[in-house]
Design a protein around this nucleic acid. Structure first.
Lengths: 364, 364
DNA sequence: CTGAAAGCGCTTACAG
DNA sequence: CTGAAAGCGCTTACAG
């Protein structure tokens, strides 16, 4: 009878290891003549073991081409060695840079990264609801997203260590930049150059995505107030991102009876369009119009754009550091502020005074 | 005695569900008064079930705030619902666009994406070795990486469905673009405009990273041959990426005794620098020098750069489609070629003839 | 130092 | 339609 059982057709169900394409820890254990626990221990590396046993196991692993299953490890260890990064739709150069910073910081760890993007309104709830979904990740990096009550609630519900990058909130660890202060600094710089008709051009401040724009506006008004300059609605342009938006803004601003002599632009790409349109209209930069950008993209240095440098890559790098510390059990509530820097180049200069520009515009 | 056991101090070890932070399928089953199998079935959605039971289970899930563990699912299903994307260091706009395409294609699936970047030489072997590591992914998208024997071997070793994006090889499914043909088309276009002194400016063709440059060179020489134009070493400039590289290239080319009247540049960002330097040296574009870029980034339309449009986003989108079909069991070996398009704008025009330019350069 | 066993949280035939 | 049980491939106390 035993014989009969053994001569069952090959391929019949049974614990025949050779059947499966994937080699498991069990195959290795068998080949090395040890228990699976032993294999697991040499896998973990740290644990010592009799050198001879160890060598035997390693040989078996190499010979079988064994690759441990990250999934199984994750399940039994209770950690996935994966970080989730939530970013707005990667439409800005900024997020790409943040991702690079994150990658740099993770380069010599064994963490993988899952990127989740929060698209416009429609996908927003879904994306937020999915935050940390299924414990696919050990921790979350939320990038450039305004900490709305909704987001905070989602984060709490996910019960996952979370750090805010390029945003801040008292309840959460964060690595951020003070966009209001940075903008105010740019205004002060223009003010010191003698400008008193200063405009702000920016993208619309979205409800859920980057709070950048709103913060910059706050800094703008603050600095204007400090300088005893009255805020003017026609000096605050909200327009599309990219060069096109800048073109539009220049058109609107320069058509004003008393156009500004200086403009702070919420992004360098908008600034490019604004510069171009201003020049097309015969304005000399910076003689007739001073322009300060925001972001300091690669192109900016090249075209001599005076702009606010935001340490974007470092934002990502530090964010990872804080999150990893958190995962390692750190309890200090890190709230890190990174400094911005005004890169003074060639597109901003002294004001020529109100008179000259008034005369020219009147004559047009 | 039973009483005594029950009055053990709370918090003592034991199978008390309330102890753990995470609710499992078991807790839900208990709360709904059903077996875990039943809960699993309503989770899977597809399977029918008595509406009443189903409702009870769903209520329990909602009430407990239950979130299924993706890890456990992956382990028991044998698939992770994760795709791995391998890209060169995300230094090019191109890869970002590909990633966007991938994301778009994945938007309404439940697949997550793990991104792995292949950095310069040092990290290369590590990154390749890690390909599909630990079965963290169900399939792999290899983007803009030359299919070297080494890479192919790694792919084979990973035993994971893999599709090449922006690269091609007979043994693997792929979605690609013919960079050689696209470049040749640009040359022909310039040729038809009367140019016979045509140069190529490009980035160094890396051994393991994008094969772009090498392919473009091949197309360049091919088209030159077709037109009976002799290849000239001094008309092939290999230089750094970005505007700086373009500046250098313009300097080298325009210092030649008989400078080219037209240039094809391997990237739009290089083209930007080249245009600028050419103008700084008093050359009018396109009167004195025609320039054709490559890539068609956003800026290009804006500055009127004639360039080769590569459907980068679609490359990513289609790549996902092919991979997903593969995972669904499709066996047809998809080798998809996507068309490029020459975007004719303002930086390329008719040649003014050899004489005029020779006269001017001689007089300088 | 190492084996055997239980367990991580699901899924999936197998019986009822 | 649904429960009980085995299994996915590891890890980790627990004994030896």
């Amino acid at each position: 009878m035993a014989r009969a059982a053994e001569s069952q057709p090959p391929g019949a169900a049974g614990p025949v290891a050779g059947d499966r394409a994937v080699t498991t820890i069990r195959d290795v254990a068998r080949a090395a003549g040890v228990g699976v626990g032993t294999v697991s221990r040499v896998l973990s590396g740290g644990a010592r073991g009799a050198p001879a046993t160890r060598a035997r196991v390693e040989a078996a692993m190499a010979q079988l081409g064994y690759r441990p299953s990250a999934t199984a490890r994750a399940l039994s260890q209770g950690r996935t060695h994966t970080l989730e990064v939530v970013v707005p739709l990667v439409t800005h150069h900024v997020y790409v840079e943040v991702l690079r910073g994150i990658e740099t910081a993770l380069a010599d760890t064994d963490y993988a990264v899952v990127i989740r993007t929060v698209e416009r309104a429609a996908a927003r709830d879904r994306a937020f609801a999915a935050l940390g979904q299924g414990g696919r990740a050990d921790g979350v990096l939320v990038v450039s997203l305004a900490p709305t009550p909704e987001l905070l609630e989602r984060i709490a519900a996910a019960r996952l260590p979370t750090v805010l990058v390029d945003a801040a909130h008292p309840d959460l660890p964060s690595v951020s930049v003070d966009h209001a202060a940075a903008t105010a600094e740019a205004i002060r710089f223009l003010r010191d150059l003698g400008h008193d008709r200063i405009a702000l051009v920016d993208e619309p401040g979205d409800h859920f995505a980057p709070a950048f724009a709103a913060e910059r506006r706050r800094g703008f008004r603050m600095a204007l107030g400090e300088a005893n300059l009255a805020p003017r609605a026609d000096y605050e342009i909200v327009t599309a991102g990219g060069p096109e938006g800048g073109v539009e803004a220049a058109a609107a601003l320069l058509a004003l009876p008393d156009p500004p002599t200086a403009v702070v632009v919420g992004s360098d790409t908008q600034a490019v369009g604004l510069l171009q349109e201003a020049r097309r209209r015969g304005r000399h930069v910076p003689r007739d119009l001073s322009v300060v950008g925001y972001g300091d993209i690669e192109m900016s240095r090249h075209i001599g754009l005076t702009t606010v440098r935001v340490p974007v890559r470092e934002l990502g790098r530090r964010g990872v550091e804080v999150l990893l510390a958190e995962l390692a059990g750190s309890t200090e509530p890190a709230q890190i502020r990174l400094p911005t820097e005004l890169m003074v180049r060639k597109t901003a200069g002294p004001s020529r005074g109100v008179e000259a520009s008034r005369r020219r515009d009147g004559g047009a």
